[in-house]
């Protein structure tokens, strides 16, 4: 088995990378995929909380790198999905404990027995991000339809394009408020895709149930859960039509009349 290493990143902090990683990992697990989620945000561990596994941590990523444990020992099995594992970040070390080479070697071992290795990247474009990017076959950029988020995403895409190995980059537009898009007060998915010029893989609506589910450390349900399931299916090669993203009927009508200028 050769798994795919997918890094989830955004440049800007607070855009929903960790929530996306957790929910995608759980959605893929529900599709019977063997999944490992790695928290690459050393010193700012959070993926364990969002996945509801914070009480089960014994070893972490840095313990593996510094050979205090075997890789298998740092993999925490998810309570609901037997084929989903988390490798937590170290909370009391800093990012320099990990190098791109370490990440490549860990990913290489995990690829042998898993379908997907998801890496939750830290914010920024420095060390931690470079570690998260090093083993990636693919990158998912999470951006909010908001100017600073889009600008930072563009910067990240530029850096990935200049990476030494080709990486497939796709876009998740997160926290879309379609009522604001309709009103003309939020960038539409089309606007964001148009500016970033990369392929779209998912649209996640803004919904307060996400807060509830991460409070409880469980998978998001409702429209958001559905959005993540759609992304997971698209990752698996299914042709899932995109959710109605902009002003619905009005939006289409507007585009039909070319009144975008």
């Amino acid at each position: 088995m050769t798994g795919r290493v997918i890094t989830i990143t955004s440049g800007k902090g607070g855009g929903g990378k960790t929530t996306t990683t957790a929910n995608l990992a759980m959605a893929l697990a529900r599709l019977d995929k063997r999944v490992v989620a790695i928290d690459a945000d050393i010193g700012l561990r959070n993926l364990d909380l969002v996945m509801g596994l914070e009480n089960r941590i014994v070893y972490d990523l840095v313990d593996v790198i510094e050979e205090r444990c075997a890789l298998r020992q740092a993999m925490i099995k998810h309570k609901d999905y037997p084929h989903l594992y988390l490798i937590p970040a170290s909370q009391n070390r800093d990012k320099t404990a990990v190098s791109p080479q370490h990440m490549k070697s860990i990913a290489m071992q995990l690829k042998e027995s898993h379908d997907f290795i998801l890496i939750d990247s830290p914010a920024g474009i420095e060390w931690g991000f470079k570690n998260a990017l090093a083993p990636a076959d693919e990158v998912l950029i999470v951006t909010n339809p908001e100017i600073s988020s889009v600008r930072d995403a563009d910067r990240i895409i530029g850096i990935i394009e200049n990476h030494d190995t080709p990486i497939k980059v796709r876009l998740i537009v997160n926290r879309l408020k379609s009522n604001l898009v309709k009103r003309g007060d939020m960038l539409s998915v089309e606007d964001v895709v148009d500016m970033l010029s990369i392929r779209l893989i998912g649209i996640v609506p803004d919904d307060e149930t996400v807060l509830k589910s991460s409070n409880m450390g469980i998978a998001a349900g409702g429209v958001v859960g559905q959005a993540y399931e759609n992304i997971a299916r698209r990752l698996c090669g299914e042709d899932v039509p995109f959710e109605e993203s902009n002003g619905g009927f009005l939006g289409r009508f507007r585009r039909l009349f070319g009144n975008n200028s």
């Binding site: 100017i147 604001l180 898009v181 009103r183 003309g184 007060d185 939020m186 960038l187 539409s188 606007d191 500016m195 002003g247 009005l250 009508f253 507007r254 009349f257 009144n259």
Partner: peptide
């Protein structure tokens, strides 16, 4: 209905 308005929408300015 066509989304025309004398005031440019903030999303358009953002873009």
């Amino acid at each position: 209905f066509l989304g025309r308005s004398s005031q440019p929408k903030s999303a358009k300015i953002a873009k």
